[in-house]
Simulated assay, not measured.
Amino acid sequence: MKNYESYRVEDFIDDKDFEEWVRGRSSRETFWRSFLQHYPEKREAFHQAEQFIRAATVAPERISEAEIRKEVERFIVATGSSVPNQSPFLSGFRSETSLRLPYGFRWAAGIAALLLAVVGLGWYSIHTNSTPLITRKADGPNHSPDGSANQFVETFNHTKQLLRVVLSDSSEVLLSPKSRLRYPSQFVGNVRKVYLAGQGSFSVKRRKQPFMVYSGETVTKVLGTRFVVSAFDLDKKITVQVLSGKVSVYKANPERTSYNKEVNGLILNANQAAIFEKSDGNLTKTLVANPALVRKSDKEITFVYDDVALSAILRELETSYGIPIQFDEQSFEGCKITAALSSESLYEKLDLLCKAASATYEIIDGQIVLSRKSYR
Rank of each mutant, 00 (worst) to 15 (best):
L310S: 07
L268N: 10
T302C: 01
K285D: 08
L314G: 02
N271Y: 07
L268S: 07
E316K: 09
I323Y: 11
Y259I: 05
L293F: 05
D298T: 09
I337K: 07
K285Q: 10
G281E: 14
G334H: 00
E262H: 04
D280N: 15
I267H: 02
N253W: 02
L317E: 05
T257G: 03
F303N: 09
V294S: 02
G281L: 09
Y321R: 03
E318L: 02
I337W: 05
A309L: 08
K285G: 08
G281K: 02
A340H: 13
A309Y: 03
S279M: 13
I275C: 13
D298P: 04
E344R: 13
V304P: 00
G334A: 05
K261Q: 14
N264L: 13
A309E: 15
S297I: 00
N260L: 14
A312R: 12
L266V: 00
P254L: 06
Y321P: 01
N282A: 08
T338P: 10
G281A: 06
A312I: 10
F332C: 01
L346Y: 11
L341W: 07
R256H: 06
L287D: 14
A289M: 04
E262F: 04
V304E: 11
K278Q: 10
N264F: 07
I301D: 00
R295M: 13
S331V: 04
S345E: 07
E262C: 03
A309N: 03
P291E: 09
P324D: 02
Q272M: 11
N253D: 13
V263F: 07
A340C: 12
K296N: 00
G334F: 14
A274M: 02
E344A: 15
L293H: 06
S311N: 11
G281H: 10
S311V: 15
L283Q: 00
L317R: 04
Y321A: 03
A274T: 06
F332N: 08
C335H: 04
R315Y: 07
Y259M: 11
N264K: 14
I275Q: 08
Y259E: 13
L287S: 10
A312K: 14
G334W: 15
P324V: 12
T284F: 07
K299M: 09
S311T: 15
N264E: 10
